[in-house]
């Protein structure tokens, strides 16, 4: 028997790539890196994945998956259940509406779009957090988190782009 003659089994269906990368990004943001002050300003890695895939392959990241991943994220971080799901879904909804402006545009333009999306998402977390606890949370770490999230986007987007070219038709 010649193994080479057999069809190569797929390790996973290629269409699961966005979901798998999203889970990976969530796990990255949960990593307890021992950098002073890091916890409060951990970039919103998951948001980068959601933005990227909603712009380039919107059908592969259906709302129900975002809801599931967001809920799982909240369960682990201890944030109120539903918070991340809400932020992820609203981000998707916002990006879907503006999608035609982003596809086939220069990266700088897409990055600018992400800057606005991240601002909205992070501000939303801050507003809900303040309302939920009945106190105004310190906005400074939130601002820094936004800056870091925007700064990390090109690297993450590049990796996702590579994966996309490698696995997706």
């Amino acid at each position: 028997m010649k193994p080479a003659a057999l069809p190569r089994p797929d390790p996973f269906p290629a269409s699961a790539l966005p979901f798998l990368t999203l889970v990976l990004l969530v796990l990255v943001s949960l990593m307890p890196l021992r950098i002073p002050g890091y916890a409060a300003v951990t970039p919103q890695f998951a948001l980068m994945g959601i933005f990227h895939w909603t712009v380039y392959r919107p059908a592969l990241l259906p709302p129900i998956l975002l809801f599931a991943v967001g809920s799982a994220f909240d369960l682990v971080t201890g944030a109120p259940l539903g918070l991340s799901a809400l932020v992820f879904l609203l981000a998707k909804a916002a990006v879907l509406r503006q999608r035609q402006f982003f596809v086939r545009r220069q990266f700088a333009f897409v990055w600018f779009g992400f800057t606005l999306t991240a601002a909205g998402a992070i501000a939303l977390v801050w507003v809900i957090g303040s309302l939920f606890n009945g106190v105004l949370l310190d906005p400074r770490p939130v601002l820094l988190q936004w800056v870091l999230t925007v700064a990390f986007y090109p690297a993450v987007s590049w990796c996702l782009q590579r994966a996309q070219r490698l696995f997706l038709p």
Partner: peptide
């Protein structure tokens, strides 16, 4: 799906505020 799930998440957050004990029972096994 999208609007419905958005509403569902918002409702979940409000429920959290009302009773965090229920969610703790989901959270720890997860």
């Amino acid at each position: 799906a999208l609007p419905l799930l958005i509403i569902a998440s918002a409702v979940l957050i409000v429920l959290n505020k009302a009773d965090s004990g229920l969610f703790e029972r989901i959270r720890t096994p997860f």
